[in-house]
């Protein structure tokens, strides 16, 4: 049994002019200890998928269909109080801006100790000792002193380390990390990615890593899920998806990424832009931008279907498999 199973998840926003479907029948699973990268452009629905899993969808957004199972139990229909106990204890969360996760009015030690004592049966002294150990583990220098620091006294990179310590404080089985490095400088980004990777490996924590940065996914994830206009269009082992993408969107996306050493040539360009939620075309949502689209793509929505070992794509007109 997979640690997390998401089945036909639908997230919608009711509006006066009808409902907007932001996540449209998305299914995937995460095994214990696995890192699943979820990539897509802004508005593709990747962050909303993560938020739905940790039960933090902002109203009026709501789960309108499907099921989310964690350790075999449904968690999408739990009352808020029950979900709160799972969040933090079993599922940790890391967001883009560390300041949204840290309370500016409490020292970082108090926030860590509170989280630890909420979820684990420890007394104050043991909680403080564990908080210091966690800060050391995430690479905060002089943790005995820094534990009494306020969030504003730390740099962005240090704050994100504290957030990671908070997310891992109760030894959760899964961490949902939403753009954990996007707000940081490049050299700090690399430090945080390395840290997250090392900690999750050592603790056997599974990760849903939501990001727009394919490079971060290439270096961190075991498998990758590519989202477009609320739908999962390709899912497979990182290496296969990066080297042999089968969905035309994934292929265009990979070609559009500038690479060092590729010289000054033109970048592959996907014409147009992702449709807005109120204007998603019928059939395959990508067909108006797709160089391979045919009549069927305009009429019928393709479902995710196997295209290789553990590799699936939702497309009527798959890119041919490269030979040799």
């Amino acid at each position: 049994m997979a640690l997390l199973e998401v089945e036909d998840l639908v997230v919608e926003f009711p509006t006066r002019r009808g409902r907007l479907v932001a996540v449209d029948r998305v299914s995937f699973s995460i095994e214990a200890g696995e890192v699943l990268g979820m990539v897509g452009e802004s508005g593709a629905g990747k962050s909303l998928t993560g938020m739905a899993i940790i039960g933090l969808l902002e109203p009026p957004g709501r789960i309108a269909g499907g099921a989310i199972r964690f350790e075999g139990r449904r968690i999408d229909d739990l009352p808020p109080e029950a979900m709160r106990r799972i969040r933090g204890r079993k599922i940790g969360a890391i967001f883009q801006d560390p300041l949204t996760s840290l309370n500016p009015l409490y020292t970082i030690g108090r926030q860590l100790e509170e989280t630890i004592r909420t979820h684990l049966d420890l007394d104050a002294r043991a909680a403080r000792a564990r908080a210091i150990a966690l800060l050391r583990e995430v690479g905060i220098p002089a943790p005995e002193r820094r534990i009494d620091a306020w969030p504003h006294e730390l740099s962005g990179g240090m704050r994100q380390r504290v957030v990671i310590a908070l997310a891992l404080a109760a030894e959760p089985a899964l961490v949902v990390a939403d753009e954990p490095t996007t707000a940081l400088d490049v050299s700090i980004q690399a430090q945080i990615v390395q840290l997250l990777k090392r900690l999750c490996r050592e603790h056997g924590t599974a990760v849903l890593l939501v990001t727009h940065d394919m490079g971060v996914i290439a270096e961190t994830a075991d498998r990758v899920a590519v989202m477009y206009a609320g739908r999962l269009v390709e899912l497979g082992p990182v290496e296969a998806v990066i080297r042999r993408p089968r969905h035309p969107y994934t292929r265009g996306l990979m070609g559009a990424i500038p690479r060092i050493g590729a010289g000054k040539g033109r970048l592959v360009q996907i014409e147009g832009a992702m449709p807005r939620l109120d204007a998603i075309p019928p059939g395959c949502a990508f067909h108006p931008r797709c160089p391979r689209a045919v009549e069927r793509c305009r009429l019928e929505r393709p479902e995710l279907a196997p295209v290789g070992p553990a590799h699936a794509a939702a497309c009527w007109r798959l890119e041919p498999e490269p030979t040799g």
Binding site: V186, Q189, A190, Q194, M214, E219, E239, R259
Partner: peptide, 21 residues
Amino acid sequence: LLDTVPDLEMRRRERAPVAGE
């Protein structure tokens, strides 16, 4: 700086830890 650029080809390499800010 060059070493911190995530690389699509060299996946899962362990990079030399870059200290400091």
